[in-house]
């Protein structure tokens, strides 16, 4: 399994079964927030099950231009919060969903996968529960589906 080069020495091959939640980034601003502010949000009413994961990987949609239709980035999930949208994005107080509750994933540094995973045919992605080993070995997004981690979200 290809090893990632992480600044603080993780993850190693002993984390192969770690749970990864593949989530969708469909706008540039959300990717910027993940990269610069280290957080990502999921509407609570659309939260996947299971929700807990050690890592979150991001599938980029067409809005992300040249990076689109690939799972490219990975970050450790360090903690969770529940916040109203207006608390997370105070610059949009009048957004129709400003009072809606979101699960806020506080992230570690965003790292680029050594080999981005394309979605050659499957383009409509929502959430995928997978494992770190599957993520690093996959050659197409379709390979991420299947049996999830057996050692659990934070194992």
């Amino acid at each position: 399994m290809a090893e990632l080069s992480w600044g603080d020495g993780w993850p190693g091959n002993d984390e192969a079964d770690s749970a990864v939640l593949v989530a969708v980034v469909n706008n540039v601003e959300d990717l910027r927030r993940a990269r610069e502010e280290h957080w990502y949000r999921i509407p609570l009413r659309h939260a996947p099950r299971p929700l807990a994961a050690r890592y979150v990987a991001f599938y980029l949609t067409a809005a992300l231009g040249p990076e689109r239709w690939h799972v490219r980035y990975l970050a450790e999930v360090r903690r969770y919060e529940l916040r109203r949208r207006v608390e997370l994005i105070p610059s949009e107080p009048f957004h129709p969903r400003s009072q809606e509750l979101y699960v806020c994933l506080r992230l570690g540094p965003l790292e680029e996968l050594p080999r981005p995973i394309p979605a050659r045919r499957l383009r409509r992605v929502t959430f995928i529960n997978t494992t770190l080993s599957r993520l690093l070995a996959a050659e197409d997004v379709r390979e991420l589906f299947g049996r999830a981690a057996t050692r659990g979200a934070a194992a």
Binding site: A19, R49, P50, L51, A52, R54, V77, R78, R79, Y80, E81, N129, R147, A148, A149, T150, R151, G152, A153, A154, A155
Partner: peptide, 25 residues
């Protein structure tokens, strides 16, 4: 596939909120 708590090592990497989300699952 669902963990009972945050199992990261060292212990200093763990956070209660992660364990709580595991509990919810």
């Amino acid at each position: 596939d669902i963990a009972t708590h945050d199992t990261r090592l060292p212990l200093s990497r763990r956070h209660l909120s992660v364990s709580l989300v595991c509990l919810s699952d």
